[in-house]
């Protein structure tokens, strides 16, 4: 407590000392102390693994007589990439998946947040129900949905046949429908993530602003368009950013639902990286692929930064 109010250090000290001390204990020191725990966590727990990863990405590693031996190969992993039958397909599927789920979940999450922020009596019901999908482990979500999708004993087929549908869809067994089936599950699972962030954003808007809009005679839709949306824009973009990274890493859910099939219809890059890393134990290539995917994610990050700058300029 009171870190910021410690008296400034004795001015008779050497200039350099004063600077250093005032930085640590002076009036502005709170900003350093507040950041310090994070820095400690980052340095202790992530610096070494990240450096290792960077080193691995330019090496070939192998166990020889019980020792992990590493050999520098520079950009040699590009060769492996050229020979990889799956990486390209998996990356393409991942991009389709990411763009689809981020857009759908952003729109539905936003609509839900706006709608639920307006309810009173049933609000608590809505808020609790929406959290539920997030509390189920992805393995179980994948399993339960694959059971519902199953053509031979699944719920959807049973219902559709009862309703007289002659050729019910094959869902995850149909190469054209598999990725869509996977996206449906993801939307069910992760829309709540977007909802929670956006609801917090809406609740942070000072009520006076909305009141003012209403006094001006704005309709609901206009209030959303001209008051809520501009204020919410940064929050929406941050939510999209976080969700994008998460969607790139989608794994357990698809692994259980389709294992990447039928054919290569639902191969995604994180599953491939896991296989390269764990089953094939090609640490170097796995590290290289991880960095490559991170580069793709940074393209999205750059886009969100650009969008937020444009929006800030437009809405002032």
């Amino acid at each position: 407590m009171g870190l910021g109010t410690l008296p400034p250090p004795d001015s008779s000290g050497r200039l350099k000392g004063v600077n250093w001390r005032s930085r640590l204990f002076g009036a502005g020191s709170f900003k350093l102390w507040a950041l310090l725990p994070l820095l400690v966590v980052l340095v202790i727990f992530t610096l070494l693994p990240i450096l290792q990863l960077l080193q691995m990405s330019v090496s070939e590693l192998e166990f020889v007589e019980g020792e992990l031996v590493s050999e520098f190969i520079g950009l040699g992993q590009l060769d492996n990439l050229a020979k990889d039958p799956i990486a390209g397909i998996a990356l393409k599927n991942t991009l389709v998946f990411v763009v689809a789920v981020v857009i759908i979940e952003t729109v539905t999450g936003f609509c839900l947040a706006v709608a639920i922020s307006r309810t009173k009596t049933l609000s608590i019901l809505y808020r609790s129900v929406v959290i539920i999908p997030l509390l189920i482990p992805p393995v179980a979500i994948g399993t339960m949905w694959s059971l519902m999708y199953d053509y031979n004993y699944g719920l959807f087929t049973t219902i559709l046949i009862e309703l007289g549908v002659q050729y019910p869809p094959l869902w995850t067994a149909d190469p054209d429908l598999a990725l869509i089936s996977v996206i449906i599950v993801d939307v069910w699972h992760w829309t709540s993530f977007m909802f929670l962030i956006m609801l917090a954003g809406i609740e942070s808007i000072p009520p006076s602003l909305l009141e003012a809009a209403r006094v001006d005679g704005a309709t609901e839709l206009r209030a959303i368009r001209y008051v809520i949306l501009p204020i919410m824009a940064p929050t929406i973009l941050v939510a999209m950013l976080l969700r994008t990274i998460l969607a790139f890493k989608v794994f357990d859910q698809i692994f259980v639902l389709t294992s990447g099939g039928p054919g290569t219809a639902t191969q995604v890059i994180s599953m491939h990286i896991y296989k390269v890393f764990s089953e094939q134990f090609r640490l170097g290539y796995a590290a290289f692929l991880s960095l490559m995917v991170a580069a793709f994610m940074f393209i999205f990050v750059a886009f969100y930064l650009w969008a937020s700058r444009v929006l800030r300029r437009r809405f002032g």
């Binding site: 199953d150 053509y151 031979n152 995850t172 067994a173």
Partner: peptide, 16 residues
Amino acid sequence: APQNYADLGQGDLLAL
């Protein structure tokens, strides 16, 4: 095979 032959795992064979 059943129409969803492209999506059958060991568990599905056991189930069938």
